[in-house]
């Protein structure tokens, strides 16, 4: 069963002369993890805030869970979870107090104790939020986003500022939520985050979607030329080719076995991304074959 969770047609929003969002179309299916990537000022926040019902638009049609967020009702709010960017609220309350309190806003909330377990904060349940680490605090944010049992969850830069271990833990939590059928829309600066989590990504630049698709195939990434490099006579040589296997076989024959310092690379998601947003003058070929 595929239902459309988010449908956007011709969305536009301008601030004075600046077109923050310009003629955007978007379809997000129920149950998928969808990432919106883009540099600061690309229109990510504006677009998502319009979907969340925080901000009005100038033109276009928007439907989120079948409702125009411009006419957000309490009933609709109960079906949508929003995890805003890092906040400093509820500092003097404990994790459990806060979760129980927010559960009272919803018609059909999750059990706060279950949510505590799920975000792995059961052992910090009676700690005041002020005393939590950045990663723990962020997990409280996610817990508050899902306490109402939402069908759709918006995550705004969920792991900004977290250490690698805390990021991975949060990623596992997000995947876990998606497995239960929650549709997840996340905005992020981090390409590895989009690659690790999202089934599909949209890259925004200048208020427009410049590419959309699975991270592995984004921007023709899968079919892009590979670069084969090796060491010969003390110099680093390279060939860009659409058939790297043939190239490697030829090299192997020429060297009669091992090719010194052989590597085959394809453009990383970062290369593709930088090209798409138009700021990567010279794509690098960092990273090995995935």
């Amino acid at each position: 069963m595929t239902r459309t969770a988010v449908k956007v047609r011709g969305l536009a929003k301008r601030y004075g002369e600046v077109r923050a969002v310009d003629d955007m179309d978007l379809d997000i299916q129920a149950g998928e993890i969808f990432a919106i990537l883009g540099p600061n000022g690309a229109g990510k926040s504006t677009a998502v805030e319009i979907l969340e019902g925080y901000r009005d638009r100038d033109a276009g049609e928007v439907s989120v869970l079948g409702v125009d967020p411009r006419h957000a009702t309490r009933r609709w709010r109960a079906r949508v979870g929003v995890v805003p960017q890092t906040a400093g609220d509820a500092a003097e309350l404990t994790v459990r107090e806060t979760l129980r309190h927010f559960a009272g806003y919803y018609p059909n909330p999750a059990d706060p104790e279950e949510v505590l377990d799920r975000v792995q904060l059961a052992d910090r349940a009676d700690t005041r939020i002020r005393r939590l680490s950045g990663g723990q605090r962020r997990r409280v944010d996610v817990a508050l986003g899902v306490i109402g049992n939402p069908e759709l969850l918006f995550l705004d830069e969920p792991t900004t500022g977290l250490d690698p271990e805390a990021r991975r833990r949060l990623w596992r939590l997000i995947e876990d939520l998606a497995r239960d059928g929650t549709t997840i829309v996340l905005t992020t600066h981090y390409l590895d985050e989009a690659e690790a989590l999202a089934g599909r990504v949209a890259v925004l630049a200048g208020g427009r979607i410049v590419a959309e698709g699975a991270p592995a195939t984004l921007g023709g990434r899968a079919t892009a030329q590979a670069r084969v490099t090796w060491l010969e006579d003390g110099r680093r040589e390279h060939v860009d080719t659409g058939t790297p296997t043939t190239t490697v076989q030829r090299l192997a024959r020429r060297f009669g076995g091992e090719v010194p310092e052989l590597s085959v690379t394809r453009p990383s998601l970062e290369d593709v991304y930088l090209r798409l947003i138009g700021s990567g003058a010279e794509p690098t070929t960092a990273g090995s074959v995935r």
Binding site: G31, R74, H101, G104, Y106, P107, N108, E114, N149, D180
Partner: peptide
Amino acid sequence: MSGAPAAPPARAAAPLPSIAATGWSR
């Protein structure tokens, strides 16, 4: 949270908490 995909019909039926209840809780 458990059984989220099957839940929508039940959700629609549950009443929203009143202003009085949420106001008191606030």
